[in-house]
């Protein structure tokens, strides 16, 4: 998503909303998170959620505007967002694109296609060979 942001930030606004953790240590932890040293318990307080969000921002030098869902999960509930989902809201405040539920139906290329249809495609060279850099759900370079 960062690449899409860089390609279209002059045309559209971007907002990341951090919602409840998908694979915390005290729930369904993934081996990949242990390998990448992304090990957090499910936040029980807003302060814990804010702390994890800041860790994420610092680790990836994340450039996209960021908001944190309150501990009552209001944004998550309103948008059926968990574990990850993409939306595009148009200028009139209506939903113009609603992505599928992640991770299986989370597809940044659909957002890119929506933006490309409006503002033109931005082409890139093919990506280099697979990197060993850690991959976070919000930090995917796609």
């Amino acid at each position: 998503m960062v690449q899409i942001y860089n390609d279209y930030k002059d045309h559209a606004d971007f907002l990341t909303v951090y919602v409840r953790e998908a694979h915390p240590t005290d729930e369904w932890q993934m081996k990949s998170n242990v390998k990448d040293d992304v090990c957090y318990a499910q936040p029980k307080t807003l302060a814990q959620r804010v702390a994890i969000a800041n860790d994420f921002i610092k680790r990836f030098n994340y450039p996209i505007a960021f908001g944190i869902d309150d501990i009552n999960n209001a944004a998550n509930d309103a948008y059926a967002a968990w574990p990850e989902r993409l939306y595009v809201i148009d200028e009139s405040g209506r939903i113009a694109y609603r992505g599928g539920m992640g991770p299986f139906h989370y597809d940044p290329d659909e957002v890119r296609a929506w933006l490309a249809a409006r503002y033109g495609a931005v082409k890139h060279d093919p990506p280099p060979a697979a990197s060993s850099a850690p991959v976070a759900s919000l930090g995917s370079p796609k």
Partner: peptide
Amino acid sequence: HFHIRERTGGRPLVIIFGSYT
């Protein structure tokens, strides 16, 4: 604090929901 709707209106808004893990 801020509201999602404060960020809409001028241009399209792409919202990325997700978490760290």
